[in-house]
Design a binder for these strands. Sequence first.
DNA 1: GTCTATAAAAGGATAGAC
DNA 2: GTCTATCCTTTTATAGAC
Lengths: 210, 210
Amino acid sequence: MATTKPAVKSNGVPSKREAILEAAARVFFESGYADASMDKIAREAGVSKQTVYSHFGAKDALFGAFIRGYCGRLLEPILTPGIHDKGPGAALSGIARRYLDLILEPQAMALFRTMLAESGRFPELAETFYRSGPLVAIDNLADYLEVLDGEGVLRVSEPRLAARLFFGMLREDFYFRLLLGCGDQPEKNEVERTVRQAVDVFLAAYAGEG
Amino acid sequence: MATTKPAVKSNGVPSKREAILEAAARVFFESGYADASMDKIAREAGVSKQTVYSHFGAKDALFGAFIRGYCGRLLEPILTPGIHDKGPGAALSGIARRYLDLILEPQAMALFRTMLAESGRFPELAETFYRSGPLVAIDNLADYLEVLDGEGVLRVSEPRLAARLFFGMLREDFYFRLLLGCGDQPEKNEVERTVRQAVDVFLAAYAGEG
DNA sequence: GTCTATAAAAGGATAGAC
DNA sequence: GTCTATCCTTTTATAGAC
C-alpha cells in the first residue's frame, strides 16, 4: 500500500500539490524569487492562496521544494556513457556540445540566475545546486581524463583542475553575456567554433610533452 | 565660474548628494537592489528620505547613478602598460594575476552579482557594465595577442576568441562557486596554481604549430 | 482540504511646513 | 534644500466558514 500521496491521480488529473509545484516553477523561472508573489502562484495554479500555504507553509519552503525538485534532473544528458571509445577528440567534443546545450538552455539559465541572486538568502540551497550541477560535470570529466592519462593517450597530472579549465573555456564570456542579458542565444556555428577551439587547445596542451 | 556643484565643499565636508551616493553604494553592495530600501539609504546617509528623492527622483535612478559611477573605475589595474616587454609567459601571468585579483575582490563580486540579478530590470545598465568591464579586458588582451602573432612569437589566428578562452580558463569554476556563496576566498597559492596552469595550457596550444 | 476575507507590515513615493 | 508626517500599493501570512 502506498503511504505517500501520488502526484497524479488515477484519473490523470494532477493533485493540487503538484499543480502548485508546477505553477511555482513557471513563476520562479519567469520572475525569480523576490518578484514572484504567492498570489501569482496561487492564481496560476488555479487554487486559493491559503491552499498554497497549507501545503508548503511559507514562500521560502516552496522555493526550496522547487529547487530540490529540479536539481536532480539537470545533468542527465551529460553523463551519457559509451562515448569514451571514439578517441579523445570526438569524446571531448561530444561532452562539450552537450554541456553547452545544457547550460545555454533558457530554463537552465533562468534557474542559475535565480540561484545567484538568492544565494545570500539560501546558502544551503546554493550549495545543493552547486553539488548536483556543476560539480557533477567536473567530477565526471575528471574521471574520464584520469582514464586517458592512465592509458597514456593524454598526459594530465591534475585532472580536476584540467576539467575545470576545460568547462571554463567553453563558457568563455558568452555565458556571462547571456546571463547579463546582452546578446541573443548563440548560433549553432558559434557554439561549434567554440567547441572546436576549446578542444584543440586542450588536446594541444595535454598531448604528451606536458 | 563653476556651473556644476562640487562633490566636497571647501571645508572638507561632503555634500549631501555625495553622502547619499556613498550610502547608496554601501547599501547596494550589501543588499543588492531589491532588498535595499530608500529608508535605509537615507538613514545611512544621515538625511531624510525626501532629500534622497529631491536629488535622485526615484530608486532606479539612484541605482543607475551608482552603477555608472563605479563602472569606469573597475578596470584600471588591468590596463597597466609596459608589461609587454617581458616575454609572453611573464606578460600573460601578470595579466592573469591582475585579472583574478580584480574579479575576486568582494566588492567587485557583489557588484557583479547585483548586476546579474537585476539585468532583467535594467538591460541598458547591464550592457553598460559589460562594455566597461569584461569587454575592455578582452579587447585589451586580444590586441596584445595580435601583436604577438604579428611578431611570430605565438600563432593566434582568432585573437578575440583566444582571449575569451583565456579569461574563461582563469575563472574556471572557482568564480561560480564564490558567486554562489559556496567556499571562501581562494588562498594565494590556489590562484597561483590556476594562473600557471592556464598560462601553460595557453602557451602550449598557441605555440607555433597551430 | 479548500475557499473568501482580512490582518499586518514593509517600502516607494509625496505633501506641506520651514 | 531639507525635514516630518503621511499616503498608497504590494505582499506575506492568517482567521474562520464550509
